[in-house]
Design a protein around this nucleic acid. Sequence first.
DNA 1: GACCTGCTGCGGGGTG
Length: 851
Amino acid sequence: MAPEADARVAADPAPPSAAPARTTPARGRRSHAAADAQGPEAFDAWFEARGWSPAPFQREAWAHYLAGRSGLLHAPTGSGKTLAVWGGPLLSALAQPPAPRAGVLRRLRVLWITPLKALAEDTARALRDPLADLGLDWQVGIRTGDASARDRKAAREGRFDALVTTPESLSLLLTYADTAPVLAGLEAVIVDEWHELMASKRGVLLELALARLRALAPRLRIWGLSATLGNLDEARRVLLPHAPDAPLVHGVAARETVIDTLIPPPGERFPWAGHLGLAQLPRVLERILGVRTSLLFTNTRSQAELWHQALAAVWPEAPETLALHHGSIDAALRHAVEDGLRAGALRCVVATSSLDLGVDFPTVDQVLQVGSPRGIARLLQRAGRAGHRPGAAGRIVCVPTNTLELLEFAAARHALTVGRIEARPPLRLSLDVLAQHLVTLALGGGFEAEAAYAEVRGTHAFAALGRRHWQAVLDFVVQGGAALSNYPDFARVVRTDDGRYAMSDRRQALRHRLSIGTIVSDGTLQVRYLKGGALGSVEEAFIARMTPGTRFAFAGRTLEFVRIRDMTAYVRRVEGGRVGAVRWMGAKMPLSSELGAELRRIVAGHDADAPEVAAARPILDLQARISALPDTDTLLVESLTARGEQQLFLYPFAGRHVHEGLGALFALRLARMQANTFSFAVSDYGLVVALARPMPVDDATLAVLLTPDGLLDDLHASLNMGELARRQFREIARVAGLLPPSLPGRTPPSLRALQASSGLIYDVLRQHDPGHVLLDQAEREVFEAQLEFRRLRATLERLHGAPRLLARPQSLTPLGFPLWAERIRGNLSNEDWRTRVERAAERLEARWSRG
DNA sequence: GACCTGCTGCGGGGTG
């Protein structure tokens, strides 16, 4: 495999700090060779003039393109992937300049889809770069939500040769009947960062849009770009369902990634539980000061705020060299941080996933990860954010926040060496997205039902769409379905006399365009200074608890709450002092199955020489002594009775969603054996079920608890499916166009109002149209997304067949302690909880050291 | 004073 030095050979375009784009041929740089070369040779000459030569995978991708094929290119960032897919259209244009159509100056030939509008500018620059040198007079435009009215118009009229856009903006293009002839002339669509899109509804929306484009331009080539993931071949099939033989081209191998864990010295007391990690502050600061620029990743926004605050308190440099970046901070402030990174003006940025993707910052020397990486792909992604020095390995400094987390980094290291990376499962049959797309089609010139059905079934997401569901979705967009047919707002599409489905009402059209997209986020308040500067957004529930004068940390500042007006929280800045940080009720991302499996392997005694494992040795030995350490495939169950209450600890290492499902399931199944009172708590490693009255538990009991038989029925019986589905329905209602979009310039509805209106619709449907397809979908999504049903079932199958080790320790064990702490959290204040956990830890340590 | 879990992404249009 080509060494990393080859990055120069096929490098991705210069970062934005480099020379600005040239729109006219730059005489000086235009090479002698390229100036004279004709046809495809000009492209080689262009490479040559830069001292580059095309890498084999680039030539491979170009050859496929020139043969008219679609494909998927698997390549890490910075490896020359842009030119690998852009070279095709360029070579094709050089080989055969298309005859200009009469009266048409330009023709939209290439559409470049990016999931991140922040990438559009750089991408456009990269695409423009070779054009002038090759003598191609192409205009490269950008059409995202940020585009000017002029650019929007130009994009719609096809006055660009290549257009960089987002999935949402592509959908918007499809809502105009006059874009059909423009799109019919397309030669290629390139989907960047396909791995980011494919497992989400955004991906489904794009699948549908691509099916439309294929119908308009049958010879269209579609090329996807993807980072490493566990199901690359599936990624290829999802993007290219029409081309089963499409090639999967592999770019240069990813460079090696070194995991460098910050291990607390032996004498230091390291937390048993908790995930904040501030005990590691001195070591982290030392690492940060050891290089020029660092990115410090945390897992949550609140944690980022707290780490920023803690670092600021001990920051020896100019305060403005330390910055904070996360998704709830105002875009302008975030852009300022990004600019600071580009300019090399920052020493450290504390960030969440908001900096996982996007523009590469060559100035970043070091990446640190605080807390569990949750998944191997995620750790790899973050490690890749540090500057690429040719030939050097990628390095990530990992900061465990508690003792057990040490092991996760050893587990991740082994996963990387054996190439175990998570798969991203594509979504299927997202009927809310289909409904939205059908309205788009109706608005964009109308459709004929049979042709549209065939087209939609040509996607991966809807390949299995049956007639009944198709008809139901069609009815839904025409009249809202049976229960909603009296509400004109829900009758969006009309069936015309010639049997076509169309949409003409201008108000409805505007409403639909405002509703396009699948990202649902609302219920937040803007945070502003009294003078007007925007800081970002927080959740209503967080601010609701405040009275004027309450202080909190947000956006890296200490603020004082003043008042709420028009969904805006007004604040003033106050001086320092440690105050509580904003908290959000975000999604709880579980540990991946892959990392969980690796962790079981480590716990079972593998990789004992890894520094993290060595550091955790005393804990592992203790666990073995007072309870047991399970083999990789053995399930450890601990039964512990104290003060008349029995606790069952299980450690499947299957991630918190699965453990939630198991908890509910076990409570139900235990109740069948004996009338009792149950409660449970989960972590990413396991769960604890507490029984108010002890009952005998043996292996036969466990076998009953763990049987996969009747899983579905039992889950239905044990969970409040109605309420879960009702909550899930809000997103579906929004995507399907049942909720009014927030109009620009108007105060957005509050979360309560949205919940109320989606809840109202949900109830109306439940009562009058219980078979409504969107209700089914809400329940399906609860199973798939919230419970991770497939993973739950797989886990249960694994556990049921696995050897079990039933231990009866006399006290809480190192594995059980965090679960116990989690369990008592519920009804205690933070402070009380903290005190109790602290006390218990001390007692246990004393007891363990005696035993 | 210590102590704190809970991600990201996009999006209008016509007139002056």
